[in-house]
Design a protein around this nucleic acid. Structure first.
Length: 586
RNA sequence: GCACCCGUAGCUCAGCUGGAUAGAGCAACGGAUUUCUAAUCCGUAGGUCACAGGUUCGAAUCCUGUCGGGUGUGCCA
């Protein structure tokens, strides 16, 4: 099905537009209060004002002319001119049956894309280990990619790009460090093994800061790298391979779909940078200022009130972040064929992207493509400052995930002491990682949030375990009742009949899945999905307490089993969109 | 200084293309289990939506100003 809200909106808008002689939005919303029906049309009052009509009379006209009787009961006009819509039981049942039969898409229509969408996210610095600062970009970008992929139904249309840091001085330094400390690996890069990347980087950095001749050697090494010297490149590749390996472990643990094939790091664009500047120059956009190549655009000012440049080449001739990003835009639009570029980075880079986008548009590289920055807030510690360890270092993701799992293990062992240890460990993994991801994704993107184990793993209320638990309960019903899911559906999905209020509430929430997915894709805000899933799990829990399933007489029993199944399918799918695993038992 | 973001219940937050009585979770209090998993459910209490104006039939939502917090603001990424 198409999103229900869209269907209703289209039908009513059509009538309103006809009455107004111009396009008018119906403004359909989910009703806050049950006494106002399931959905409500709010747009009539505004239109009445504009046409100088009595709003209730206009509402009446809209109702008479709208064809809604296949979906809704007799609409009701209320208050100053609201139209309250109540869904027909038969229509709801029909839609739910359709979703049950369609296990692939659970009734969510595809929404075709003309071009591709590039999602740029994660972007760790491969010279170091991944830390908590990479968490948000990595999981938010993954969720947005998954939702966009699902919605368009064509995985090839969504291009995940991991713009890793794999170039520049820091790698010159690492190569130099290997040359000085590990001559075997330097001679035979294939044999390089870095067990602790972070320590390795720190050692190199320490030497760099303390030893002037080593520092000089690092700069030389960097120049050699940029000149593509064979020996240097070979060591550089070996370092990257080691680093990539440690990143991949994190991605796998986080259930994030990223691998080597998604990597398009800074080095990818290194040969393009001179031509970026040359093209900008040819377009007459570059001004030399204080020795640097600058693009000045209206509307940007420095702290002193002077015009602020986007610097594309430093006074020493080197290129910068902005240059690489411009090259990436040119490539993604021109060569990949993207119609939409989505950048998932923290909000401190807002101005940077604003300027880069602005520049790309002016020079014509963005063509028709939509350039979007999805900014998000920082992860803070309990002291409201950027989340760090006691000693002031970045919290490494590996350690963070270890702790999430071990804390979850403690809870699982307390709640389900009878399960075998291996199973408890699997549950702890799904629950612990899920809790971390969910806590992050359920926040509005723009706000900072305080990282708190206690809140995250309280595992009550609006948390991943609450939804995983709801899912596990459905599975438990199927186990206890020895229900074969395929047989259940084959036995007739049309046996689903809504009677009890709790059944109707659950059904109503289930029918909103399509519109939820579509709003996440449109607004690029994952917390809309977490909010929905919380409502769904809540509606199910209420239903679970109010309506016995296995003990009910037929045909109610089958009907409720079908409702349970669709709930489980939707929960699993929705959590899947978040990259959060479901478990059969917990 | 300027720009952007934020300010909603004791705490954490949702709601912001204007709509009916501002919603959740946690914490507090009171209930529900011989019943499909109590990591649950039902209920009670809790609000000057920072403040002041303005626009509107209608403002937490839009506009202006003030206060408070965060971030950014030329050669890092």
């Amino acid at each position: 099905m198409k999103p229900l809200i869209e269907i209703l909106e289209n039908r009513v808008s059509e009538v309103m537009s006809e009455l107004a002689g111009e396009s008018v939005p119906a403004v359909v919303k989910v009703s806050q209060n049950a006494k106002f029906g399931d959905y409500q049309v709010n747009g009539v009052m505004g239109l009445a004002k504009k046409l100088g009509m009595n709003p209730r009379q206009l509402a009446d006209k809209v109702v008479v002319n709208s064809k809604l009787d296949d979906i809704c009961q007799e609409p009701e006009i209320a208050g100053p001119g609201f139209i309250n819509l109540r869904l027909k039981k038969e229509w709801m049942q029909e839609q739910l049956c359709g979703a049950l039969v369609d296990s692939e898409r659970i009734g969510v229509d595809k929404s075709e894309l003309a071009g591709k969408v590039v999602v740029d996210f994660s972007g760790p610095n491969l010279a170091k280990e991944m830390h908590v600062g990479h968490l948000r970009s990595t999981i938010i970008g993954d969720v947005l990619s998954r939702v966009l992929e699902f919605l368009c139904g064509d995985g090839d249309k969504i291009v995940r790009q991991n713009h890793v840091g794999d170039w520049g001085l820091q790698f010159g330094m690492l190569v130099a460090y290997i040359a000085e400390t590990d001559s075997d690996a330097y001679a035979n890069p294939g044999s390089l093994k870095v067990s602790d990347l972070e320590q390795f980087y720190k050692n190199a950095k320490k030497k760099f800061d303390e030893d002037e001749s080593f520092k000089k050697f690092c700069y030389e090494s960097t120049v050699k790298l940029h000149e593509k010297d064979d020996a240097t490149m070979a060591v550089w590749r070996a370092v990257l391979a080691e680093s990539r390996r440690s990143c991949q472990v994190i991605y796998n643990r986080l259930v994030v779909e990223l691998n080597e094939n998604n990597e398009k790091g800074e080095s990818t664009y290194c040969d393009e940078l001179p031509s970026v500047v040359a093209e900008l120059k040819a377009a007459g956009m570059v001004t030399e200022s204080e020795g640097a190549m600058c693009v000045f655009m209206d509307g940007y000012k420095t702290a002193d009130g002077e015009p602020m440049p986007l610097i594309v080449q430093k006074s020493d001739g080197a290129f910068l972040y902005a240059t690489t990003d411009l090259a990436a835009i040119r490539y993604r639009v021109g060569s990949v064929g993207a119609e939409r570029l989505v950048y998932v980075t923290d909000s401190r880079q807002k101005l940077h992207f604003q300027m880069v986008f602005d520049c790309a548009r002016r020079v014509g590289w963005s063509c028709e493509a939509k350039l979007e920055h999805v900014p998000f807030g920082s992860v803070l510690g309990e002291d409201n400052k950027p989340f760090k360890t006691r000693s002031g270092e970045n919290v490494k993701l590996a350690a963070l995930l270890d702790e999430a799992e071990s804390r979850a293990m403690a809870v699982v062992s307390q709640k389900s002491p009878d399960l075998p240890e291996e199973q408890r460990r699997d549950i702890a993994r799904a629950v612990g990682i899920g809790a971390v991801k969910y806590a992050d994704l359920s926040n509005n993107l723009v706000s900072d949030y305080v990282f708190s184990w206690d809140k995250m793993l309280a595992m009550e209320g609006n948390t991943a375990p609450y939804m995983q638990y709801a899912y596990a309960r459905v599975q438990s019903i199927f186990r206890k009742g020895e229900v074969d899911v395929n047989e259940l559906v084959a036995g007739g999905s049309d046996k689903l009949t809504i009677s009890e209020p709790a059944e109707r509430e659950l059904a109503k929430v289930l029918l909103r899945y399509a519109e939820t997915i579509s709003s996440v894709a449109r607004e690029l805000r994952p917390h809309l999905l977490t909010g929905y899933l919380f409502e769904l799990a809540g509606a199910f829990s209420t239903f679970y307490n109010a309506c016995p399933v296995l003990k009910a007489e037929e045909p109610v029993r089958s009907s409720r089993l079908l409702l349970c199944l669709l709930t489980a399918n939707t929960l699993k799918h929705g959590l899947g969109m978040l990259g959060i695993e479901t478990i059969e038992q917990m």
